[in-house]
Design a protein around this nucleic acid. Structure first.
Lengths: 326, 326
DNA sequence: TTTTAATGAGTAACCGGTTACATATTTGAG
DNA sequence: CTCAAATATGTAACCGGTTACTCATTAAAA
C-alpha cells in the first residue's frame, strides 16, 4: 500500500502538504493541490486509518454489542445501526454478548483498545462498572437507563397492551410466559401484562422460559400445554416463543384463534409469514437501531444530546392469532 | 487510559521491558516481571491495539462482509464466524453489502485502511479486482471460487435433491422459483433443480424472484399462485420464499402437503417452527461460518491451507410440507 | 581463572499519519 | 513604496506501541 510519503515524493511536496490536501485543512495552492490529487490517483492512495487513529486518539469505529444476532429481532437493530453509521462513515466492530457479563466486558475492552469513538450496547446492566468508567459515549439500545443515553421501546406498556387485547378479545384463562429472568426487556413486558391481568381479576398463570433460543422455544411451548391444557390465551415472551406455541397448538389440534389466542412480542418479519399470521406487539426495531446510532453520533459530535432517552412507541398488530373486534 | 510509558515509570523500568513482559518475548528477570505485572494491575493497563497495529502493520481485526444480516440465513453464518474468531481472539468489522458491488468495494477499502489481517466475504464476484488485488487473505463464504479459498454448500446438488424429492413424493406439475439472477448460490440451486426436472420429463414452470426480502417473498408467492394455480409442488428459492408460499397456499385453502408440496432451501431455524413444518434443503450455516473462520485463520497463520475449498454437504430435511415416503 | 555464552535491560528508530511552529512569498492597505 | 496580513510550504515532534542494537552482568565451559 502506498503511504503518504510515497504520495509526497511522487508529487514533489512534503507529507504535511499532502496531509493538508487530503484533510482540506490549512493553505494549499491550487496547483499544488492538483499535483497531489494526481499523485493520489496514480498511486491509488488511501490514508491509513490506524495511523490517524493513533495520533488523534480516535478512530472512525463504533463498538456494537448485541446479545445474539441469531435471534431475528437483533439483526433488525443491527441493520438500523449500520445504515445510520454508514451515512456518517463510521464502521462497526461487532460482537455477540450472549447476555454474558464476562463476554461483554471482554468486548468493551477490545473496543477501547481499538480506539472506538462510541459504543452501542444491549446490556442488562447499564450501570455496571464497565460502562460507568468508560470515557467514550455509550448508547444503550433496547435497554433502559435513567441517567445514560438510551433508545428502547416501552416494554411495560407493550405488556399491558398485550394483556388488554387478549382480554378484550375474550380469553378468560391466560398464560403468560415470563421470559428469561435476567433479561430486562422480557421482565418489563411480563410486568406490564401481569399488571393488567391482576387488576382484571381473570384467572391466569405464569410459565418460565429460560432463554430465547429456538430449541428452548419449542420445549417451553410443549411444557406450556402439558401444564395448562385448558389455557385459551397465551402472551408469549417474544415472537419466536409465540411461533413455537402456535406450532404446538396446531399440532395438538387447537383452533387458533377460536379456542386459543396467541400474542407475540417484537413483530419480527416472519410473524407475518407464518400461518395463521401472528398477532403481536410491534417494536420498531430498525428505527430503534437508527435512532441509537443517530443519538450516539449527536453525542460524539456535540458532546451532548438534546434528548438522551428515546422511548419508541409499541403497538398492537392485529393479525390472525387473535379474534377480530371492532 | 494508561500507556506503556506510565507502566514503565510506575515500575521503574523502560518501555522496552514492559513490552517484553506483555508480549512474553526476550529476557526478563522474574523480579522485574513481577514489578511490571503489578504496575499493570494497579494502573489497569491494557495495550493500545492501534499502536501495535501501526507498527506491525497488522491488527487483530477481520473484515466480514455479508449481503444482508436481516436475512435469517446470514446471522447463522456470522455467528459461526464470530465464535471461531473469538476463540483465536480476533474481532470483526462487520458490514452489509446488499449484494452491491460499490458498497462492497467501499467496505473492503476501509477494511484495508484499518489493517485487518483477513477478510471473509459473500460476494457474487470473487474474481473482481477488489479481491484479486488484495494483499491480505480472503475466504469466500457461501460462494465458490476455484482458485481462491472458499467455504460453500453444494447448491447445485441441493437443487437436484429438492427436485428429486418433490418428484419422488408425487408432484407432477412443479414450479421452481429462480431467485435473484445475480446471486450465485440462488442460481446454482436453480440449475440443479432444472437439471433433474428436465431429464425427468415432467412438466414444470419457472418463476422469477428478484430479491430475498420479506416483502418480495410475499409478493412472489401471490404471483406464483396467480400464474400457476394448478401447481402441485413448489421448489422455493429459499426458506423465506418457501414460508411465504406456504402461507399463501394455506390462505388459498390448498392442502399442504396433500395437494401441494413445498421445499425450501437453507433450513433456517424458523423452518421447524412454522406450521406445518417446512421440508427443506439443509445447509450447515453455523458450521460453514466456523469453517470459513478456521480456514482464514489457518491461512493467516501458516501462509497457506491444506484444503482451500471446503464444500459442505447439503441434505434433505423431511418435514411436513412434503408427503411421507419410506 | 579465563573465555564465552546466556541473561537482563535500556536507547532510539520506526510504523504512517497530524499539526505546531518556522520560514518564505505574495497580496493589499495606507 | 512600505509593511502587516494572508497565503504557501516545509521541518520535526508526537501518538503508543515494537524491536534492533548496545552494553552490562551473570552463569557455564574450558
Amino acid at each position: 500500500m502506498a503511504t503518504i510519503k510515497d504520495v509526497a515524493n511522487h508529487a514533489g511536496v512534503s507529507v504535511a502538504t499532502v496531509s493538508r490536501v487530503i484533510n482540506d485543512t490549512g493553505y494549499v495552492h491550487e496547483n499544488t493541490r492538483q499535483k497531489v490529487d494526481e499523485a493520489i490517483r496514480q498511486l491509488n492512495y488511501s490514508p491509513n486509518e490506524v495511523a490517524r487513529s493513533l495520533f488523534k486518539r480516535k478512530s472512525k469505529l463504533i463498538g456494537l454489542l448485541l446479545p445474539d444476532i441469531t435471534n431475528p429481532y437483533f439483526p433488525e437493530l443491527a441493520r438500523g445501526v449500520e445504515d445510520r453509521m454508514q451515512e456518517s462513515s463510521y464502521r462497526l466492530i461487532f460482537g455477540n454478548s450472549d447476555e454474558d457479563e464476562h463476554k461483554e466486558r471482554d468486548y468493551i475492552q477490545t473496543f477501547v483498545q481499538n480506539n472506538v469513538v462510541g459504543v452501542i450496547s444491549s446490556t442488562n446492566d447499564p450501570n455496571a462498572d464497565t460502562y460507568m468508567k468508560l470515557k467514550i459515549p455509550v448508547v444503550f439500545l433496547d435497554r433502559t437507563s435513567n441517567d445514560m443515553p438510551s433508545v428502547y421501546a416501552d416494554g411495560r406498556e407493550g405488556g399491558r397492551i398485550a394483556a388488554q387485547q387478549i382480554l378484550a378479545r375474550g380469553s378468560r384463562n391466560v398464560t403468560i410466559q415470563q421470559g428469561p429472568k435476567h433479561v430486562r426487556p422480557a421482565q418489563d413486558r411480563y410486568q406490564g401484562a401481569l399488571e393488567i391481568l391482576e387488576q382484571s381479576g381473570t384467572p391466569y398463570q405464569v410459565v418460565q422460559t429460560s432463554s430465547f433460543s429456538y430449541e428452548q422455544a419449542g420445549v417451553s411451548a410443549k411444557e406450556l400445554f402439558q401444564k395448562y391444557p385448558d389455557t385459551d390465551g397465551v402472551i408469549a415472551s417474544n415472537d419466536i416463543a409465540a411461533v413455537a406455541v402456535l406450532h404446538e397448538a396446531l399440532r395438538l389440534g387447537r383452533q387458533v384463534p377460536d379456542e386459543l389466542q396467541i400474542i407475540g412480542f417484537d413483530d419480527i418479519p416472519l410473524s407475518s409469514l407464518v400461518y395463521p399470521t401472528l398477532s403481536t406487539i410491534h417494536q420498531p426495531a430498525y428505527e430503534m437501531g437508527r435512532e441509537a446510532a443517530g443519538l450516539l453520533i449527536e453525542i460524539m459530535e456535540n458532546g451532548y444530546a438534546l434528548h438522551n432517552n428515546i422511548q419508541m412507541p409499541v403497538s398492537f398488530i392485529q393479525r390472525d392469532t387473535t379474534r377480530k373486534v371492532d
